[in-house]
Design a protein around this nucleic acid. Structure first.
Length: 114
DNA sequence: CGTCCTGGGAACG
DNA sequence: CGTTCCCAGGACG
């Protein structure tokens, strides 16, 4: 966070990025879970915030998946090479998806509030 | 499997 | 300043 080039974002987006930073490596979260944790319901708003993520790739947006445990989108694409990259990043962290595109280990989903 | 809703941001008028 | 469109999701029928 250097003083220079500090993007002015809404508190909502900041909350999303901060919450995302709380998700440790090797673990993932969901849009709905994040929204629920923030108290500002709307997985779409979270997805949009991630899509506009000005802190990427500092912010592990790749650790956010869909509620149905699918990879979700990445790089502004719901599907395609960017999503494949997301899967690769997660796989590098020990998180892998099945042939159906679903998370193999649901236990990898991080839980807020503990 | 198809359709509707919520929430928020950016863009347009 | 008010209105409209878009979105990396989710829930419901």
């Amino acid at each position: 966070m250097t003083a220079a080039g500090r993007p002015r974002i809404s508190d909502f987006q900041r909350a999303v990025y901060q919450a995302l930073l709380r998700v440790p490596r090797g673990r993932v979260t969901t849009y709905g879970l994040l929204a629920e944790h923030l108290g500002r319901g709307s997985p779409r708003a979270v997805g949009q915030a991630l899509r506009r993520n000005p802190f990427a790739p500092r912010v592990p947006c790749h650790r956010v998946i869909a509620a149905d445990l699918t990879a979700g989108g990445f790089g502004g694409e719901r599907r395609g090479r960017q999503v494949a990259r997301k899967r690769a990043l997660l796989a590098a962290e020990g998180v892998r998806f099945g042939g159906d595109g679903r998370l193999l280990e649901p236990g990898r989903v991080h839980r807020f509030g503990s």
